[in-house]
Design a protein around this nucleic acid. Structure first.
Lengths: 335, 335
DNA sequence: CTGTTAGCGCATTCAG
DNA sequence: CTGAATGCGCTAACAG
């Protein structure tokens, strides 16, 4: 078996020579075939196969100023919360020939800032942010870069450019309103300490009317931290009737810890989560939660970016996709 | 407030002019500061700030043939399984100044193939695959591209280039061995129908010695599919003693469905999952599962790629990281 | 429909 | 230590 020596990759030049046409004709045959005659098209295609040519998008992008890449910045990919968004974003972009460059800010403002610079250095055609851009200087650099930017999973009247999200203040308020409607008096919160989770807490307190016992855990929250959080909360306030948890994962931890302590959910302790994870409808008791359409965020964000990349101006650059409280057994009226 | 018109981004040329040095001196000041005198270094730095210069990595990469990008291909980002790997990979690469370009093959061979081409077109400095490269032509193109490639989450003696993973056949065999050691006679499997999950099933059957009732569900498997799978299995074989599930998520679904049917776990039905998800140790009963160090896969893969990018030859390009059965309450000996 | 001429922004030769 | 020239691979703009 004769292994092809890994010689330098074929360039468009090689293709053109092989096909007996000029460089630009070969280029057009590949990117704008409608401008080229059937015959030459055929010859170029044969030459491509013969040479094993794979285009160099970097080089093309340098001239055309289109990298066909979109930067995507998340706090951390391991946050289940953002997965449907990431999946939809990646898929929708890929369908249009764009790839995502991934960055993780680690819930850290300085890293986010540096990451935005790094990303801009790669000249992406657009940028997606899970969350709002934190620093003023980063906002400015993004505006300067002149690329479409979608902020998401949050709300602001003055985004850098475009936004697909919802108000965490309103979510917190809605949960507090729901708790009020239940007639509960002694309630608490178990929350991650990131910006968005804290906003929900603020919204909760604003509607509730006064501070409530709260356990903060480091983001990203998980099941184990939920168990810890309940212990903390019960130490402060042993007679809580209901707890809002900043994620379903954390709520599951709280539920397990409660059951381990012999507390019945919801009779002794009602629970509400956030995010509507897959398991939430299936655990026993089923978990009341706040549903947010993460897939939709990803898809709309991609569409907005693509539209702007195509030179159009979206009619609705700020989309509030809202949210919904899903009432389930974990908050069934306790007697 | 005078908004800076989004004029064209500053280039190194602008910086050089501003600093009163030549283009190349400015270039060196930024990438090889040790070759430049203190004084000029200072002036270049000032010029960078003055112009708001952000380097264009695309242009630099064109000449230097280094894009500082690594391509990463996953079946789907929404598979919780791969998250620790993805997180560790992204982090380790970022520390070395590399970013990840993400691609999803959707458990589809043709898409994987096309995706590899798309990725090669971006001239990444390396490629990470969750799984093995499926098609021979893709393997060939990767070899031709001459970039470091790490296949992962599986095992092969002849990877395209490097590999960090473990044998799914052995996992299946180990689980069957464990089931045999328990003395169970009537066992079944609930599995996703992707390549790796099927390999575990094969390994199971090989060690078990004969076929067992099996319910296959489309990948990626989840809790809801687990519930369905148990229904299917019980329809075939109502008196199963134990079931191996191809993911912890699916096992949780099977457990919930079992409990909904009044079956006690493990007394009436023992369960073993795969993946050691966060919740698995906490559910009631705690889930026996197979633990695989996903973070390690990501980190080692990144290190191997980085080492090769730096021109070195890793001593151990094929790493079997193994796995471990974690015995918990869901397979406690039934009487 | 096709080709020629110029770069895109930077880094790699080589010389000073 | 610094600089001038050259070209990475491709495409936009203009000719034919």
């Amino acid at each position: 078996m004769k292994t092809t020596a890994p010689k330098k990759a074929a360039t468009l030049h090689d293709v053109a020579r092989e096909a007996g046409v000029s460089l630009i004709t070969a280029s057009r045959a590949l990117s704008k075939p409608e401008l080229v005659s059937e015959k030459t098209l055929e010859r170029v295609k044969l030459a491509v196969d013969a040479t094993g040519y794979l285009p160099n998008l970097l080089a093309g992008g340098l001239k055309s100023r289109k990298s066909q890449m979109i930067a995507g910045i998340l706090p951390a990919v391991s946050v289940a919360q953002f997965l449907p968004t990431l999946q939809a974003l990646t898929d929708t972009l890929a369908q249009a020939g764009y790839q995502l460059i991934l960055g993780q800010s680690g819930y850290n403002q300085a890293r986010e800032d540096a990451l935005i610079n790094t990303m801009i250095s790669r000249r992406p055609d657009g940028l997606f942010m899970a969350g709002l851009v934190g620093s003023a200087s980063a906002r400015e650099r993004l505006v300067q870069a002149g690329i479409p930017v979608v902020e998401s999973w949050d709300y602001s009247d003055r985004p850098v450019d475009m936004l697909v999200g919802f108000s965490h203040l309103k979510v917190g308020g809605a949960i507090a309103g729901y708790f009020l409607s239940k007639g509960w008096k002694r309630v608490g919160m178990a929350s991650a300490d990131d910006h968005r989770a804290r906003q929900r807490c603020e919204g909760f307190v604003a509607t509730w009317g006064r501070e409530v016992p709260t356990a903060f855990v480091p983001a990203p929250s998980g099941l184990a931290l939920g168990r810890q959080a309940l212990s903390q909360l019960l130490a402060q306030a042993p007679d809580l009737q209901a707890i809002y948890c900043s994620s379903d994962q954390m709520a599951q931890g709280v539920m397990i810890e409660a059951q381990a302590r012999g507390l019945r959910v919801p009779q002794d302790l009602a629970l509400c989560g956030f995010g509507n994870a897959e398991f939430s409808a299936h655990v026993e008791p089923a978990l009341t939660t706040v549903s947010v359409d993460g897939r939709l965020i990803g898809e709309l964000s991609a569409r907005l970016i693509l539209e702007r990349c195509a030179g159009h101006t979206p009619q609705q650059p700020i989309v509030d996709i809202g949210f919904q409280i899903l009432e389930r057994a974990s908050t069934a009226q306790n007697p």
